[in-house]
């Protein structure tokens, strides 16, 4: 298979996903199925087709540098599991 078990675990780590061993096996199969589809696309003859990252052929969409209303702080913090002094309180990490 194109994607190894080790790669699945690495990608899971990068995405901060804790996977059980059987989930790793399942995902290895599913990810490889996706890659098979990618392989089919890559096999197409795309001579003369410009690469694109977007479906719509538009560019340079910007907004003027004008202030718009912010959220009230109570709204901004409403879903915070914990807060202190108007800040999001987060548990000990790293260090």
């Amino acid at each position: 298979m194109a994607i190894s078990e080790e790669q699945v675990r690495h990608v899971a780590t990068l995405a901060r996903l804790g996977l059980r061993d059987e989930q790793v096996a399942e995902l290895q199969v599913e990810l490889n199925d996706i890659l098979v589809q990618i392989d089919r696309i890559q096999a197409l003859d795309l001579t003369g087709v410009e690469p694109t990252t977007h479906a719509a052929a538009i560019t340079n969409v910007t907004r003027p540098d004008v202030v718009r209303p912010c959220l009230p702080r109570s709204e901004a913090l409403r879903n915070a599991p914990e807060q202190q002094d108007g800040a999001f309180l987060i548990p000990k990490f790293g260090g």
Partner: peptide
């Protein structure tokens, strides 16, 4: 700049926490 990179929140230094967010 008056505002942030991708939204209309004002750019300033300091101030009360989480008062310039959207």
């Amino acid at each position: 700049l008056n505002t942030k990179m991708f939204c209309g929140c004002p750019v300033q230094f300091g101030g009360e926490s989480n008062t310039r967010v959207c």
